[in-house]
Nucleic acid binder design. Structure first.
Lengths: 223, 223
DNA sequence: CCGAAATTTACCGTATACGGTATCCGATAA
DNA sequence: TTATCGGATACCGTATACGGTAAATTTCGG
């Protein structure tokens, strides 16, 4: 393998590719992960792969196996619960900040996202639903103006995406979440920070309960 | 350089060592960081250093310079404010969780931490004060039972440690924080989750204001 | 002297080489 | 047949080699 041209973000490419495979389930929970194999598949050397795996391990997407090497982290209800507990706090503070910072253009953008969300729900495309959900929340994170929140939350959302994908194979009743989203957005655009925060936390709470119920159910079936 | 014995966590060692140098200020904000130099200093090859730097960059301790290479991230009031905004949320949810989960033994441990904190304050040792502060909050994170919170918060505390070290060279009046800590602990041990959360958030808020005021002041003087 | 072109240097990211250890497997002895 | 030992294999982490590019520096025509 020769690589004459320099494309200096092989690590990022590897990271993104592997993360995506994990989140979409192409790399299944529990599956063993081997550097050589990934390196070949991505047409890079083991080095960038190694570095990407190191990151993914730190971020909890990969676990060490007792034996040699890594495996894709299993999906655990307890971890998911912790994830949502954190998300509740994060979403709350983000919505609070967003309400203090919203502008006219953000109003248009926000309404468009909600519009899109409702449209996608009626289309029945699960992956698109998840994407729209993420897009809305990311919008709030960015509107909050707090880079750290955006980063932290984005990381967590990859985990969430994975769980959602696992659970919502045949689309749950994700319809109602867009009413809640709209409620959050309205509060934000009215500049009512406290209400935005409360609604956000409540939304995360509800989402968590629904998801975890579904998750434990599907895990029980699997056994 | 030969390394006949295998000690398979050179990356972690490098990461820890570099992070510590950044937090203590031995590697000063703005200072250029060169792989070869660090590798030599730590007596490892460039490879583990590269990987450690990659992590530290992602975590915001290092910035890319327009030119080649990395530099130690400057200390920015805006970033610090964002940090504390996040911490406020994190501490809140941690205290809430801790209050639902406290035990008899945790009561003893908590009171001991407070005892120690007060003793350290009167000793006048700034570094020890920071350490005691961190220890108390970490105690709460761990008591919350949410691994994710503990991890996320620990990461942020490295940033906080750095700022504190920068600002509190000659020790601020850190005395009052231990009254607030005690208030939080009491609420936790009474199992009053809402009060614990509120007190925690309030504490973070106050700490942020004090620190950022001090920070902007010291930055102005520096100019 | 001064500025532009050319060359050297510094330093990075990726690929490959190397050495070590845990697992697997087949052969031999109980 | 089964347990144990020895060798082969798989796979990882670290070290080193390599190639490229931006900055620094020198050289040379004005």
């Amino acid at each position: 393998m020769q690589r004459l041209t320099v494309q200096p973000q092989l690590v990022d490419r590897a990271y993104g590719a592997i993360l995506d495979e994990i989140c979409t389930g192409r790399l299944a929970p529990g599956q063993r992960v081997v550097q050589d194999e990934l390196a070949e598949r991505l047409a890079v050397s083991r080095q960038p792969v190694l570095q990407a795996l190191l990151l993914l391990k730190r971020q909890g997407f990969l676990h060490e196996t007792g034996r040699r090497g890594l495996m894709v982290a299993p999906i655990e209800p307890v971890f998911t619960a912790h994830l949502y507990e954190l998300r509740r706090a994060l979403d709350g503070v983000a919505a609070h900040g967003a309400a203090l910072r919203h502008t006219a253009s953000s109003a248009t953008a926000g309404r468009a996202l909600i519009e899109r969300g409702r449209r996608v729900v009626s289309s029945g495309d699960t992956a698109a639903m998840i994407a729209a959900d993420i897009a809305f929340h990311r919008f709030i994170y960015e509107l909050s103006g707090n880079k750290l929140i955006a980063e932290t939350a984005t990381l967590h959302w990859h985990h969430i995406r994975r769980v959602m994908g696992q659970v919502l194979r045949e689309a749950g009743r994700l319809g109602t979440i867009w009413d809640e989203h709209e409620g959050i957005l309205d509060a934000v655009l009215r500049g009512n920070a406290d209400e935005a925060e409360a609604r956000s936390r409540h939304h995360a709470e509800r989402a968590a309960q629904a998801l975890i119920a579904e998750l434990t159910l599907s895990l029980e079936q699997a056994v």
